[in-house]
Nucleic acid binder design. Structure first.
Lengths: 210, 210, 210, 210
DNA sequence: TATGAATGAGGGTTCATTCAT
DNA sequence: TATGAATGAACCCTCATTCAT
């Protein structure tokens, strides 16, 4: 705030909407759509309420713009996984590791998930976009990786609806962190978590199988 | 409403708070804490706003009472699992099946989960109670079952923080149903889901495990 | 305000909407629809803004209700004129005298006319209702009276669109009083005005006709 | 807007205030003083809000300037009537015909009348100026014409407050057009209207007088 | 002269809460 | 116990006005 004094008018202006979106993110996350106050969002930026309305017509539009702003589709993630090599298991692990980082460990995505859960009913479009841009591509990718593993003889054949199960530990970690946020349930150690996750995923719980 | 005519006045009175809690559940679920209106809750019961305040001091207290009312601890579930017999795997499957029914398939618990995620920050006590009454006992039970399996030589030994991973498909299904509610992601068939879930949990994804 | 203390709750309640409508009339007349403040209307009644909204959903609805409340159709006036006897001229004079009293001399109708002129564009229904309930019946009545006079040989035959001209002095007086309200143009003496009005209406300005 | 391209910069500048006054007229007419938005006025001209404030200190000053700009006193009208010849009746008819054209048929004057009626209370000076520049001179002129007619033996002698009555059909037509604007009451045909108006004015309604 | 970002004082509306009945 | 009129504190949004550029 102090060093923004040096910015020119034009720079300020280009910055404003982003500052507001950032502030909106924090307030909407903390209080939900209805609970958040435009006044508080403005305060966070250091401007007055009116200024928010210079850039966003309504609180609702601001909310939607904020969601769009922070919802950077998993383009890169999918791109990376496309270039993976190695066994199907290796590629699946790489993908799940990336997903873990992007969903469970990244605060932004995590809190976006909270908003999707809590405000989804009020903003159905939000859900649709979230599904199309996040869920569907990821699920499709996982399906593919598993199918390839099946075809190469690495993986056992498994009904098609199972992808949720494969990624479940990631979403579950995300949700538990949203709920407990280090209060009761400690944030798991990334490496240890993934090790156990993958071990169970690939080998299962039973000692002696067949 | 029609068959309540048969109730005596005393019964009516005893019913009021519960009717209000039921109505509160629906409104809070639909609109969140801030978004829900006491007026709408009263309307649902067929009384006026003032009546709600006869039974509950504030909207906040009503919310908390509602959560308590619907949060029936998994006493019976834990009791049932205590009396299970058979192999560790059998007992674990029984427990997970029960959990699935109670969390993923039961609308009340599911929506309670939504409220825990969306309103938890505003009601920290809610989180604590939820943890103590739901999460902790369940996790402990799972831990136990697995430990027993390890001791009996059925299960491989696995780090202690893994229980989340074991139940993850259940919470994930719950959350996905909260988000999409049959709009994009179809509700999975219970039997097929559990079959795959357990198959993966016990045997893992790999074809050839020595 | 002081003596309302004696009223029972029920009496108060029955009175409230009317008190509000009265207050609304004054504020809307003084400041127009946009300029009037709900707060000031409430103040006038001695209640708070919220109370106004107990009775009227929006400022717009309040405005419309106020107009309806004060727009008592000229039922009685028309009824009276229906029972008139005497020559056509006598009956026409009686009618015009009544009209003068109801439109030009009655503050309520006069100010209602101001609102019709100033807010009509924003409230087209207002205009339609005003036309159907006030203008049209009066015009029709005048037309009839003149037609009867023509048929009985009292009046000269005159094109049908002239009724406006016959009542023009009344509307003109109304509008001038609205504009000047005794500031520049003194309010005319009723008797003198009507005498001249009728003299001109019946006999015209020319000394020697034919 | 297209042909303004040809104007020099200096011409443009000289035009600005007038463009703004024109735009202000339309917006104030449509929405009243309080309802009109400076932003919309600026939009109409194709400039921004700030520009309006370059030329006019406040919205109120702009309103007053606009009224002054469009209130071109009836100088020419009075000048023309000064040069009239013929009988008193002829001269009166000429004058009333001109008045009809300037008041009832000219949209600008008509809408100015609306503003005088609706905003007069908020701008008392407006009323005074309107009276001094419009009403008083016209009334005086009419008075004169009639007096001359009386002196020449053409007109009957009539109390001095009657001038309103003589011009009433003009103001009435104006007001009715303001209210109904061709929606319910059709705009009268000029010639037919004036013919009836003058016929009634001079000859009265009665068949047999004296 | 013109811009337009920013302000800030409201204004309409909502709604949890109170309390006399 | 139940009502519902009334309150008043917010909250969203608007808009006349300012001012640095």
């Amino acid at each position: 705030m102090a060093d923004q004094k040096k910015l020119t008018r034009a720079e300020q202006k280009a910055l404003r909407p982003i500052q507001i979106l950032d502030a909106a993110f924090e307030e909407f996350v903390r209080n939900g759509f209805t609970g958040a106050r435009v006044d508080d969002i403005a305060d966070r930026v250091g401007v007055t309420k009116g200024t928010v309305y210079v850039y966003f017509e309504t609180k609702e539009k601001l909310f939607e713009a904020m969601i769009s702003h922070f919802s950077v589709p998993f383009q890169e993630l999918l791109a990376i996984t496309a270039s993976l090599s190695g066994s199907a298991a290796d590629r699946l692990m790489s993908m799940l590791g990336l997903l873990y980082d992007q969903i469970a460990e990244d605060r932004t995505t995590r809190e976006l998930t909270r908003l999707v859960i809590s405000e989804g009913q009020r903003f159905p479009d939000l859900i649709d976009r979230h599904h199309d841009q996040f869920i569907a591509p990821v699920i499709a990718k996982i399906d593919n990786l598993i199918l390839e593993g099946v075809e190469s003889g690495e993986f056992r054949e498994i009904p098609v609806e199972f992808s949720d199960i494969v990624v479940a530990p990631i979403l579950t970690t995300t949700v538990l962190r949203l709920i407990f946020d280090d209060r009761r349930v400690p944030t798991p150690d990334r490496e240890a978590f993934l090790r156990t996750y993958f071990d169970l995923l690939f080998n299962g719980l039973l000692v002696d199988r067949r």
